[in-house]
Amino acid sequence: MISSTETLISVSGLCYRNPSSWFTRMFRSDFILKNITFSLNDGESLAIIGEERSGKSELISAIAGLITPTKGIILYNGQTYESNHQMRAQNFRMIFQDQETALNRKLRVIDILQIPLLINTDMAENERVERIYSTLNLVDLPDSIATRYPSELSYGQMKRVSFARALILNPKVILANKSISSFDPNLRAHICNMILRLQKERKISTIITTSDLEIARKISDKILVLCKGEVVEFGDTRKILNSSQNEITQRLLRNYNNEYRFKRDS
């Protein structure tokens, strides 16, 4: 057993395959995730990178509890998902990829942010409102935004509202699936700064999947390289991105630093 005091998340022997009929299962046993084992210490941030169909989204959804793994155990602070559902729901919050569809467009921002509080806590109304405004403050949003609808917000503001919704229960870990790309360089730098500030001030860890290695380098301590559902490499970000010996990682880096990409020395 992995000790529980220091580890934040430990995944051991995780396998996943799409739920399908017994017939397909007998003849085609294609696992999307195969025997994934890693553990993350308290206060560390992780970036999951990999090629297409390498199972990045499945891994992060399994950690978030959105899909049930076929085999294997995920321990959150040493406890399984079943044994302490409440703790997991409060400490591991997910941010979704598409900021437009992630927010319910029929609700105002204040109502969107209230839902997790209503489900997971029994706070009085004034406490809830206080918490909502302090969280909006945390993600650099003005108070006036609380009474607006998502359709009146800009993309960056929508993204911040989804961050606020994830942060409202004071979680330990934020999981984000491909959610920082597709912004212009200024906004991208803004969001990265915000994540760094949350990591430093609130001691929040982030687990992200991304295809922008510069974001991975910027905000994470550890990197997990996946290929066809298996862990290729797991270790320190700087070490892997600067001097990896693995063939698959090298190919990934070569594809990333392709001929069209901006190079600093040119």
Binding site: D184, N186, A189, C192, N193, R217, L241
Partner: peptide
């Protein structure tokens, strides 16, 4: 200039885990 500077700071490997100066205000 601000866009290009943000892009360059993001791509600078020495800047890992550091804050980047960004443009303030809104569109």
């Amino acid at each position: 200039a601000s866009l290009i500077r943000s892009m360059m700071e993001m791509n600078n490997p020495d800047n890992a885990k550091k804050f980047i100066p960004v443009l303030t205000g809104k569109h």
